[in-house]
Each structure stands twice: as structure tokens, then as C-alpha cells.
Design a binder for these strands. Structure first.
Length: 358
DNA sequence: CAGTCGTGGCT
DNA sequence: TAGCCAAGACT
């Protein structure tokens, strides 16, 4: 194996095991100085409005910055829901439309519940303690720490994927970072390391370090401002994680029914993607199975789904009473669909146009 | 506590 | 291609 960066060029580190109680002050100082020089400019770093910061944190849960910014979710959001009150009062369909394509749709429902809690239980003012923030729906210990430090500059600890990676390398931790015991240790470290002053800059710096320097593959140890605190000699082997669940193959059959410029769609019922519109499920008892018009693949959690669309009518649907005719020209754009169904629908529509015109 | 929840980009 | 993974939270 040829190591271009990392191991061979990794700077010398302090002797012994990483000890946050001893190294905290220098660690924080070095990190913050680096961040003031190298920190990136994100819109949520230009505000201290807890509402805007909460929105950004919820959007960014398990979601890359490039998605949230590049596809316009963050900027569009404030055009639709400029403040807590407007979010609290919004209809669910508007929430889902704003969230369409971001996934984990319970996030946006919880975000609205949080907004309503701020209005109803806190007189419209955001809680400004970790404990208070933790009472808000959808706000766990990471997000509580993020809002507390980013909005209020409180010395609140925080551990996300970036921080877990940084700490596992810092201490050369070989135990799975997603094991509860290891996680507790990481949170203890975070609490010991966060400085009483400048926690906003410090937490931003810690996450930014994981994002641009202590990266998952090919970390840039020679550029790292806290390399002398780091005890690992094999950063690219860390963090260790527990084995992932094996994936399960699934077939999803849906009905493509179009008539006079309208398509037959239904709403998702149940927890997964609840409230989103979809191509209706095919009646599983149908024999023979109607002709297939197209196939698509997508992944959802640990499932690999083969999505197959069949030509049919409402009569071929599993729940024929639950659908609606939606005008392609006037209704479709306003509905929130899951990405795979949106993709399949657009594709089917395009081939329909083609067969009509050609 | 382990299982579940979406999606797009990257390897 | 298929798996891994990202500013996690909830049950």
C-alpha cells in the first residue's frame, strides 16, 4: 500500500494517551485560531437567530451540506417560512413540499411541532439552555448542543459524525464509535474539551476540522492544527464501526394510470413517507400481472427496491378508493412526492408524451 | 437497545 | 454494481 498522505507525513504527537483534562486549553486555542483563518462561510454561520440555526441543523441531519445548499432547500425555506410563527401555522402539505427530496420526512413534522412548542409553551422565544432545547420534538443531544452553542454561544458539548471521527483518531480509539459505551466516552470528551468562552467558534471549528482536514479518507494530517494532540498513526483505519445490517431486496409494483391529462395518484399511509403522494400500489392478487412499462431501482434504509410500473387503471390498484385524479398541468407540481416516485412519474410522463406525439 | 427512517454522491 | 455514508432522533 502506498501512503501519499497521513501516516508517513503525520507530525509528531505528545507522549502517552490523549488526556482531555490536560490538553483541553491548547486544543481549543489551536482549533479556534485555525478556524478563524480557514473556516468556511455558510449562511447559518452568518446568523445567531435560533430559528434559522435550528432549521439548518434539522436539514443537515444525515444530509450533506452540498445537498442542503446546492439544491436550494435552505434558501427556499425562509421564503416560505420566514419565522417560527409562519412555520407553526403552516399546513402539512406545505411542509412536505418544502422538504420534498430531502428524506427523513419526520424531521420536518417534528420541526413544526418544535415551532409550535416555542410559540405555545415559550411565548415565542426559543429556549436558551440545552435542557430547554432538548424538550423540543426532533431535537436530540447533538442538535441541542449545536443550537445552544451556535445561537447562544453557550459552552455546550456536541458530537456528530465529524466529531466522532476526529475524536476516535485523536485518542486512537479502536472500539466501534457507534457502540453506546464508546459514544458516552466521546460525549465526555466533548464536554471536557469545550471551552467556557468562544464555544460557538470552537464547535464550528471541531466540525469543520472533520469536514475539511480530518476527512474520512486521506486525512491531511500535515495541515491539521491539532496534530500534536493526535495519538493515532493510522487515521484512515478509524473510526471503527459496527457491521451494517445486510440489505434486503424488495419489489414494489405500482400502477400507471393516465386519462385526459390526469394521473391517478394516492397518498402514502403509515409511517414511512407518510403524507407524501405516490404512484398507487398494484393489487397484489392480480393474475396475470399487467404489462410492465418501466423499472427503476432505489435504496431506502437497508432495502434495495425494484420499482416496477404497470399499465392499469384505478381498478388494478390495491386501494382503489384511496386515489385521486391529478391534473398533470395544474396539480402535479404542487404535490410532494418521494424522489423515486417523482423520478418514475416524470419518466412515464415523458414516454407518454412521446407516444402521443410520435 | 437495536431497528427504523430517505436521499444523493462517492468509491 | 453495490455498499458506504452524511451537521441524528425516535421508538
Amino acid at each position: 500500500m502506498v501512503v501519499v498522505s497521513g501516516v508517513s507525513s503525520k507530525p509528531e504527537s505528545l507522549p502517552g494517551a490523549f488526556d482531555p483534562s490536560v490538553e483541553a486549553a491548547d486544543f481549543a486555542r489551536s482549533l479556534i485560531d485555525w478556524f478563524r483563518r480557514e473556516g468556511r462561510d455558510y449562511p447559518w454561520r452568518r446568523t445567531r437567530d435560533p430559528y434559522a440555526i435550528l432549521v439548518s441543523e434539522i436539514m443537515l441531519q444525515q444530509t450533506q451540506i452540498a445537498t442542503v445548499l446546492g439544491r436550494g432547500y435552505y434558501d427556499r425555506w425562509f421564503g416560505t417560512f420566514p419565522d417560527v410563527g409562519s412555520l407553526a401555522a403552516a399546513p402539512e402539505d406545505a411542509l412536505l413540499k418544502a422538504w420534498e427530496g430531502l428524506g427523513y420526512y419526520n424531521r420536518v413534522r417534528n420541526l413544526q411541532r418544535a415551532a409550535r412548542a416555542v410559540i405555545d409553551d415559550h411565548g415565542g422565544r426559543f429556549p436558551d439552555t440545552v435542557e430547554g432545547l432538548l424538550t423540543l420534538p426532533g431535537v436530540g443531544r447533538y442538535t441541542a448542543g449545536a443550537v445552544a452553542s451556535f445561537a447562544f454561544d453557550l459552552p455546550a458539548p456536541l458530537v456528530d459524525g465529524n466529531v466522532a471521527r476526529v475524536f476516535s483518531r485523536l485518542g486512537d480509539l479502536r472500539d466501534p464509535v457507534d457502540a453506546p459505551a464508546t459514544l458516552k466516552r466521546l460525549w465526555d470528551w466533548a464536554a471536557m474539551l469545550v471551552p467556557a468562552k468562544d464555544a460557538r467558534a470552537y464547535n464550528n471549528a471541531l466540525m469543520e476540522l472533520g469536514q475539511q482536514t480530518c476527512t474520512k479518507s486521506a486525512p491531511s494530517c500535515q495541515k491539521c492544527p491539532v496534530a500534536r494532540h493526535c495519538r493515532t498513526h493510522e487515521p484512515e483505519t478509524l473510526p471503527v464501526k459496527k457491521a451494517a445490517r445486510s440489505t434486503i431486496a424488495v419489489i414494489e409494483r405500482v400502477v400507471w394510470s393516465i386519462d385526459q391529462g390526469r394521473v391517478w395518484l394516492e397518498r402514502e399511509i403509515g409511517s414511512r413517507r407518510h403524507g407524501l403522494w405516490k404512484l398507487p400500489a398494484l393489487d397484489p392478487d392480480l393474475n396475470p400481472v399487467p404489462v410492465a412499462l418501466g423499472k427503476w431501482k432505489y435504496a431506502i434504509t437497508h432495502h434495495r427496491v425494484n420499482l416496477i410500473a404497470h399499465r392499469g387503471s384505478p381498478a388494478e390498484c390495491a386501494r382503489p378508493a384511496d386515489g385521486e385524479w391529478i391534473s398533470v398541468e395544474h396539480g402535479l407540481q404542487g404535490l410532494a412526492l418521494s424522489s423515486p416516485h417523482r423520478r418514475a412519474l416524470e419518466s412515464l410522463l415523458a414516454s407518454e408524451q412521446f407516444s402521443l406525439n410520435g
